[in-house]
Amino acid sequence: MAAGGDHGSPDSYRSPLASRYASPEMCFVFSDRYKFRTWRQLWLWLAEAEQTLGLPITDEQIQEMKSNLENIDFKMAAEEEKRLRHDVMAHVHTFGHCCPKAAGIIHLGATSCYVGDNTDLIILRNALDLLLPKLARVISRLADFAKERASLPTLGFTHFQPAQLTTVGKRCCLWIQDLCMDLQNLKRVRDDLRFRGVKGTTGTQASFLQLFEGDDHKVEQLDKMVTEKAGFKRAFIITGQTYTRKVDIEVLSVLASLGASVHKICTDIRLLANLKEMEEPFEKQQIGSSAMPYKRNPMRSERCCSLARHLMTLVMDPLQTASVQWFERTLDDSANRRICLAEAFLTADTILNTLQNISEGLVVYPKVIERRIRQELPFMATENIIMAMVKAGGSRQDCHEKIRVLSQQAASVVKQEGGDNDLIERIQVDAYFSPIHSQLDHLLDPSSFTGRASQQVQRFLEEEVYPLLKPYESVMKVKAELCL
């Protein structure tokens, strides 16, 4: 049975990233139509530049190519590739079939990587351009969430054990800070992308030097003109047959890092959902379990974690691919890159769409948070109580021993009897502590235990987050809708 299948058929496997999760716009960027249309555009740009620099290419040939950029006979191309065992030459023939007058000058002087690699770089750039505003929107939604809850005390956790208090907004800023680093890295790697350009079979530009009869300047002009037509500021000066596969490492490393950030955020949300302090959106008709109707599973956060793990592992592909590119190139890269580049971007696209949807509907339960604080705060307040007693004339050592005994009794009630923490009640009825009984409410005010959390939130948002989001103001209103 021949390899390949009808990918629109229910009898043929289709990647869930495309069929179930990723956005239509990201799927289109990695589609065959987008790819092969870009090949034709690159052939047109090459012909236009070659004509401008004096090669015998007519206006009629150029116009014929322009008129057929979208006229792609995919069936013919597939048949040609089956016959020739070469995808680029299959599309040269297919393009030439609908451009008979231009057929002889299509791909003039070029090698397969002229269309293959340059198209990949265009796709990487455009895919990054799709991700950047999506990530900015996630940051914006979380920034709104953090600002609104900047002063809401909550129990902090280290080692997932109760620690000092923080605020809900401050905790959210930990998430935002990681995503801001990801946004900066995505922008950097996007701006650092260079075009492969017009380089020939081993990167020496020998074929173009021959076409222009040894004119170095025209060869350099050709490279520059096509690079500018493709919208790049610069091209690699040095290439082998391909652009260095280190570029793929750079791009997928940034995406993998984004995956790590999203995994951490969504894990926190899942843990908070278990504590009943916070939940992701839950639709009115949504079913959490087929057997347990009360369940409210954090399905979206779980999906993000599941896909983020996949995204983090994909960076190993370009690392290994770059390491086995012998001399000017081997074909070890080809099949692998067809999979890992598309999957990385479709996965990143999915987790950003999902995280935006989550961040637009996060639900906080202040009463649950308050109750958990009441359970733990008495123990945390013991040092403040000791200091207040010393100020009232008591002995630190005597007070410490009193607190120690009462704390152990209260802990026994919590752990052995399943009761509430009654340390404060014990202190309130103990005559030894009568000098500070009137101060206990103040000493137990949760806001006095959150330090500068709310001020940190305000400063972080104003100095770091809002300036970073400013270039994306025009796209901030787009909502994230999930079908599944």
Rank of each mutant, 00 (worst) to 15 (best):
H7C: 11
H7D: 09
S9I: 15
D11V: 09
L17N: 10
Y21H: 03
E25L: 09
S31E: 08
W39Y: 15
W43M: 07
W43I: 01
L44Y: 08
L46G: 02
L46Q: 05
A47E: 00
E48R: 05
A49V: 08
Q51H: 08
T52A: 14
L53M: 12
L53R: 00
G54P: 03
I57D: 00
I57T: 04
D59G: 11
D59H: 09
Q63C: 11
E64A: 13
K66R: 09
E70C: 09
N71Y: 13
D73I: 05
K75L: 10
A78G: 12
A78W: 09
E80M: 12
E81M: 00
K82N: 13
L84T: 05
H86N: 00
D87P: 01
V92A: 14
G96H: 00
C98Y: 14
C98H: 12
C99I: 10
G104E: 06
S112I: 01
C113T: 05
Y114E: 06
D117F: 02
D117Q: 00
N118R: 00
N118K: 00
T119A: 14
D120E: 15
I122V: 09
I122N: 03
L124A: 10
R125K: 15
L128V: 12
L130S: 13
R137H: 10
R141Q: 06
L142I: 09
F145V: 08
R149L: 09
R149K: 13
P153Y: 06
Q164M: 14
L165A: 00
T167A: 01
T167Y: 00
D182A: 03
D182N: 01
L186V: 13
V189P: 07
V189R: 10
D192L: 09
F195C: 13
G197K: 03
G200F: 02
T202N: 09
T204R: 00
Q205H: 07
Q210N: 14
F212T: 07
E213T: 15
H217R: 13
V219N: 06
L222V: 13
D223Q: 11
M225P: 02
M225A: 12
E228H: 11
G231I: 02
F232I: 05
F236E: 05
I237C: 10
I237V: 10
T239G: 01
Q241V: 01
T242S: 08
D248Y: 01
D248H: 04
E250S: 12
E250A: 12
V251A: 15
L252W: 04
L255H: 12
L258E: 04
G259N: 00
A260S: 12
A260N: 00
A260E: 05
S261N: 01
V262P: 01
V262N: 05
I269Q: 04
R270F: 03
L271H: 10
L271N: 03
K276C: 05
E277M: 07
M278Y: 07
E279K: 03
K284T: 14
K284N: 13
Q285A: 09
Q286T: 03
S289F: 00
P293D: 02
K295S: 03
R296N: 09
N297W: 04
N297V: 02
M299P: 10
S301L: 15
E302M: 06
R309K: 07
H310P: 03
L319S: 01
Q320Y: 12
T321A: 02
A322M: 14
S323A: 11
S323M: 11
R329S: 02
L331F: 00
S334G: 11
S334N: 12
N336W: 03
N336K: 04
R338C: 02
I339E: 03
E343M: 05
E343K: 10
A344N: 00
F345V: 11
A348N: 06
T350D: 15
I351V: 12
N353L: 13
N357I: 08
S359H: 13
G361V: 06
L362G: 06
Y365Q: 10
V368I: 04
I369W: 03
E370D: 14
R371V: 02
I373V: 12
I373W: 02
P378Q: 04
M380G: 02
E383D: 04
I385G: 03
I386D: 01
A388S: 08
M389G: 07
A392N: 11
A392D: 08
G394L: 08
Q397M: 08
D398P: 05
H400D: 01
E401I: 08
I403R: 01
R404G: 08
R404A: 09
Q408E: 07
Q409A: 13
Q409D: 09
A410W: 05
S412C: 12
K415E: 06
Q416G: 12
G418K: 01
G419Y: 08
N421I: 08
L423K: 03
I424G: 13
E425F: 13
R426M: 09
I427H: 06
A431T: 15
F433N: 04
P435G: 08
P435K: 09
H437Y: 09
H437E: 07
S438D: 08
D441Y: 08
D441A: 11
L444T: 07
D445E: 13
D445K: 11
P446N: 04
P446H: 14
S447E: 13
T450S: 05
A453D: 05
Q456P: 02
E462P: 06
E463N: 11
L469G: 04
K470W: 13
K470V: 11
K470G: 14
E473W: 13
S474R: 15
V478F: 12
A480R: 14
